[in-house]
Design a binder for these strands. Structure first.
Lengths: 207, 207
DNA sequence: GTCTATAATGGGATAGAC
DNA sequence: GTCTATCCCATTATAGAC
């Protein structure tokens, strides 16, 4: 399954909103605004204006502003878990699985879903504690993909450090790319950045 | 010079506030509140209450709330630049210099100045653009320490990736430790975490 | 399902007494 | 240098018409 097919499957299961529908469009604009200005500095008027309605009308679709933030996060995690699973399944060796995971996370962070991923990282504290707990459960699913792969490399003697620590270091390193990586300005491609990440860990690119 | 001597030197030069003075105490409480609740969700009433005064009295010390955020960031960078420079000067080889930098940044992020460092990372967008520019200039000084060290390792063939990319990856990885690393809960010491970081890059610990 | 109008609250900042 | 009192404004959310 390619990325488009995965997205369509999730939409038909009602796990993520159709980006062409009213709800999906709002969530997309919300992700952009939350990333650019931060959740607190984005007003419901901003959100409404972004989809061309009045602020009062927003509350027909969502009960509170926070519900919008939560929906952005939940749908983003669902989509990216599916994408990451698919990327990993297509790889054969542990090294290639790790590369696939790094590539997929960089794609999530810097591609189509980049705005929503940045929100997930930087607006975490704006979510109520109850919502945080719900979202954390979803996150655990795809964290396990990483840990299994890193443990395999460790067993093969190709990784010197603790898989748990490495995953957390990589979470920070890869998320942080949203603050500086600008593929459109020429320079490094997404594959190039993936190679650099692997090289930092001592995995030379294949030739 | 040990860390305490460095701090005292900076205080006597008026580059950072005395943590026992009124201003220093407020900045310390502000860092804690900004990290815990975020800048936007922290009110001037919260800030005033944390040091036992009324909100109106705050504006005798700072003209605006944003000025407090900026002061937290500026003083933190000044202190950490000095600490990092000292840590690096004490090391002989490139590998040891890198280890010293990693150790110093982990100490900054997770030690006494940890709250302020977290603010620097997560509240960046709350700073006005003019203030961002000022703070960025200060940051460039210590970024150069990293780049020089990483370039030396690269020249020695001990680092496979681009120094520039590696520094940015490490910025993310090390900053992110504030979200999960809890030294007090037993487990990993700061030196242990430093070793893990080096190991992730293929540098085995000395024995 | 969107509009207009507005309620209700909480925020940053100021003024002047002490 | 801190207090009390308060201004002024922006914000989230609601109500009821269309």
């Amino acid at each position: 399954m390619n990325p488009t097919q995965i997205l369509n499957a999730l939409i038909s299961e009602n796990l993520v909103s159709d980006p062409n529908g009213a709800r999906g469009r709002l969530l997309k604009e919300a992700a952009r605004l939350f990333r650019d200005k931060g959740y607190e500095r984005t007003t419901v008027r901003d959100l409404a204006a972004a989809v061309g309605i009045q602020s009062g009308s927003l509350f027909h679709h969502f009960r509170t502003k926070e519900e919008i933030l939560k929906a952005v996060m939940v749908e983003t995690i669902r989509l990216n878990t599916a994408l990451m699973q698919a990327a990993m399944d297509a790889a054969a060796t542990s090294r290639d699985k790790l590369r696939a995971l790094v590539r997929a996370e960089l794609e999530s962070v810097n591609g189509q879903t980049g705005e929503a991923m940045a929100v997930l990282v930087f607006e975490w504290r704006s979510l109520s504690e109850e919502s945080q707990a719900e979202v954390l459960e979803l996150r655990d699913i795809y964290e396990q993909l990483w840990l299994d792969t890193l443990q395999a490399l460790r067993d093969e003697g190709r990784l010197l450090a603790d898989p748990f620590v490495v995953r957390r270091m990589l979470t920070g390193a890869l998320s942080w790319t949203v603050t500086w990586y600008r593929p459109e300005r020429g320079g490094l491609s997404l594959d190039g950045l993936t190679d650099q990440t692997m090289a930092m860990m001592g995995f030379a690119p294949e030739h």
